[in-house]
């Protein structure tokens, strides 16, 4: 039985952990380090950091986060958002990132995948494909869902593979943040037709849905945000700079809810269903 990686996905904006729905409507959830450390200690197989506005603003500010994170987290850290050239990749890797993910700049010029995978090895270079379903047709997007690009996701995945990407993180924008389950037909189609590992992202709402996507497709892992983050929100105090949408956070703090460690629980659930997880 293949091994499945469980990967908490942390979206970062202005130094804060944020979360949206369909990659939009971002709300602040807390301090990313506290979440990342908790995930490490709870048995996460990897941490995925994404700077959501990097491409939009033409920045990549994650490097200082990465170097702080890897000081006491000894699992792989994959970083994406605003990676445009070899220099960006080098900076992220020297900050302590283990793997880099690229979306927008590969759509602009796919040669970045070839160039960077030649230098850093294809296993270091990961691609994100953001898929959006419009009138029953699958298309891809860039800039974290902001711009629609007229490319077929499977054709694009094959091309990325051919140019040397080592892994594909498949985000289903229509399912993202809704916690209504995964787009199984899409994930199935991509994961059964390419050789590099596929990580499914977008839609994990409960453990059963995660089990379903593992059983019905050929994915190598699942990236999860909401299901893990929202469980932990009540655990941490958050006092930092209050930039962004704090309505949710303030509401939760006032309710005095108990936190839940859904990562730990999910792994136990998957193990009890004979899924090979760490």
């Amino acid at each position: 039985m293949r091994f499945i990686r469980i990967i908490p996905k942390l979206d970062i904006k202005n130094g804060q952990l944020i979360k949206g729905i369909n990659l939009e409507g971002l709300r602040v959830l807390g301090n990313p380090f506290e979440f990342a450390k908790n995930y490490y200690e709870s048995g996460a197989d990897e941490i995925l950091y994404l700077d959501n506005v990097a491409t939009l603003y033409g920045t990549n500010n994650l490097s200082k986060f990465v170097s702080k994170t890897v000081k006491n987290i000894f699992i792989p850290v994959t970083v994406g958002g605003g990676i445009r050239n070899i220099k960006d990749v080098e900076m992220m890797l020297s900050s302590g990132a283990d793997r880099i993910c690229i979306n927008s700049s590969a759509i602009d010029d796919i040669n970045i995948i070839k160039k960077t995978s030649r230098i850093y090895g294809s296993s270091t270079i990961c691609s994100i494909i953001e898929v959006v379903k419009i009138k029953n047709k699958y298309l891809i997007t860039k800039s974290n869902g902001r711009d629609i690009v007229n490319k077929d996701p499977l054709e694009w995945a094959k091309k990325l593979e051919q140019f040397g990407t080592g892994e594909i993180i498949l985000t289903c924008v229509n399912h993202e943040g809704l916690r209504n389950g995964f787009d199984i037909p899409l994930i199935n189609k991509i994961s059964r037709n390419i050789k590099v590992p596929v990580i499914a992202h977008g839609g994990a709402g409960n453990f059963q849905q995660v089990l379903e996507v593992i059983k019905k497709t050929k994915i190598s892992g699942v990236a999860i945000a909401s299901l893990f983050h929202y469980g932990l929100v009540p655990k941490f105090k958050f006092k930092k700079n209050r930039i962004g949408n704090f309505n949710y956070l303030d509401r939760v703090k006032n309710l005095n809810i108990k936190h839940t460690n859904n990562l730990k629980k999910l792994k136990l659930f998957l193990k009890s269903n004979n899924i090979n997880v760490r």
Binding site: S67, K71, N72, F74, L93, S94, D98, Y120
Partner: peptide
């Protein structure tokens, strides 16, 4: 130079 030095460095320090 192509290495990720940081993680092994931190692990040994840790």
């Amino acid at each position: 130079k192509t290495n990720n030095l940081y993680s092994i460095y931190n692990a040994i320090k840790n």
